[in-house]
Design a protein around this nucleic acid. Structure first.
Lengths: 156, 156
DNA sequence: ATAACTCTGTGTGTAACACACAGCTCAAGA
DNA sequence: TCTTGAGCTGTGTGTTACACACAGAGTTAT
């Protein structure tokens, strides 16, 4: 199999396949006559693994570390279990940030619909943004963030 | 005010101030004797605006566009209102992806705790990851994604 | 043979900074 | 006055996971 064939088969771009090869995640053999990369079944399994892991949020670096074990014949299961726990924590954090940002945005859209269009002055560039943030600071100081979506905090 | 003074005052790094200057968001004057950047009150207002806008999720590019209006003395309010609507849509999308990822991760952690540590074979690198994704594909085909957190879909 | 297409490696761009570095400036102490 | 140490400067590179561009070589169909 050549680059484009593997890429089509797995629904990714040829550039993606080249990228993973370039950084050493894939090691296809090279055709002796034209130098083209040649992928066999094991390479495809490897590529599928990469895509599955990326799908679960593993970074390319994570995958490198995983391969460094499995390429020695060792099980990566324990490592994978540890990595995914870290991933979940990171995701939780990002999730919370998204919730806050989302609330902030929708509140801003509401509030701003009532406010006039002001022209910039020496102290104020766009009062919508500048005043919005004033409020945020006050809220944070009081420990009462706006519009926190409690229901979305639990994992199901 | 010099770089570090402004940075300290607003709680960011000196590199951040230099970065915004480098890309043209800030235009401090230069001290004629030593070439140091010199920030006045207007520069500080500008920097505060940048930080507030970034806080609301505006990109540096967005801010450039906003300044291109306000620097001509025009109101940016309407533009800002439009930009934030786009931002909210993007955030919604990312939020949904986070929810799905989070569910996927926590489900994987649960499922994997029961599964053995296998050694890689020619067709399987880490059965945890490879089997997990099989399930995902099935779910998507059936249109029944795992563990979607309905409560977190509404904006409050 | 020629056109039309695919493949190759390599280099650059993306977002928003962080970090490094060589060299200049400056205030203070000995 | 000299030195020391801190702070400043611009510029270059690294970060993530690819996408895109490009010149040149290989392949396929007519």
């Amino acid at each position: 199999m050549k680059v484009a064939q593997l890429a089509n088969k797995l629904g990714v771009s040829a550039d993606t396949v080249r990228f993973y090869t370039r950084i050493g995640l894939l090691n296809p053999s090279k055709s002796p006559n034209n130098g083209y990369k040649t992928f066999n079944h094991k390479d495809m399994v490897r590529m599928q693994f990469i895509l599955s892991a990326r799908n679960l949020g593993f970074s390319v670096e994570d995958i490198k570390v995983i391969f460094s074990k499995t390429d020695l014949g060792d099980s990566a299961c324990q490592l994978v279990r540890e990595l995914i726990k870290v991933k979940l924590l990171e995701t939780e954090q990002q999730f919370n940030e998204m919730v806050q940002l989302r609330s902030k945005l929708s509140k801003a859209i509401q509030d701003w619909s009532q406010m006039p269009d002001n022209i910039p002055t020496g102290n104020m560039i766009c009062h919508l943004i500048e005043n919005t943030n004033q409020e945020d600071i006050v809220s944070e100081e009081l420990g009462v963030p706006h519009y926190v979506d409690k229901a979305s905090m639990e994992i199901k």
